[in-house]
Amino acid sequence: MVAVETKRERFVSVDLQKTEEGYNVLRAILKDNPDAKVDEFPGYYKVKHSNKLTIKRETVESFMGRPWDTQEFNLVIISYSGNFAEWDDEKIVIQWDTHM
């Protein structure tokens, strides 16, 4: 018999494409979520936070140098873990434990 080894960690995360736009969104996330951590993989970044990630339109715009619609997040996101607690014109919030 082989013993099962398992260690679990709870976090919210978002996987972003390694593109210019993805990188700008990543920088905005790191600015607004100072405790977030990034893991790099071929082709994508995984940004994790123990609790909550916020993506703010204004911050992304400051890195992009142009207007950015929060719906454009669709073009850089690959995947995520958590729940879209909010998604409006100003910001996107990903966290666990939200009701409908």
């Binding site: 260690k7 679990r8 960690e9 709870r10 976090f11 995360s13 873990s81 729940n83 666990w96």
Partner: peptide, 15 residues
């Protein structure tokens, strides 16, 4: 471990 145990079991199912 990353996508199932952490994200699904520890994340989703606790939710």
């Amino acid at each position: 471990e990353l996508y199932i145990e952490d994200q699904i079991l520890e994340g989703l199912f606790r939710d």
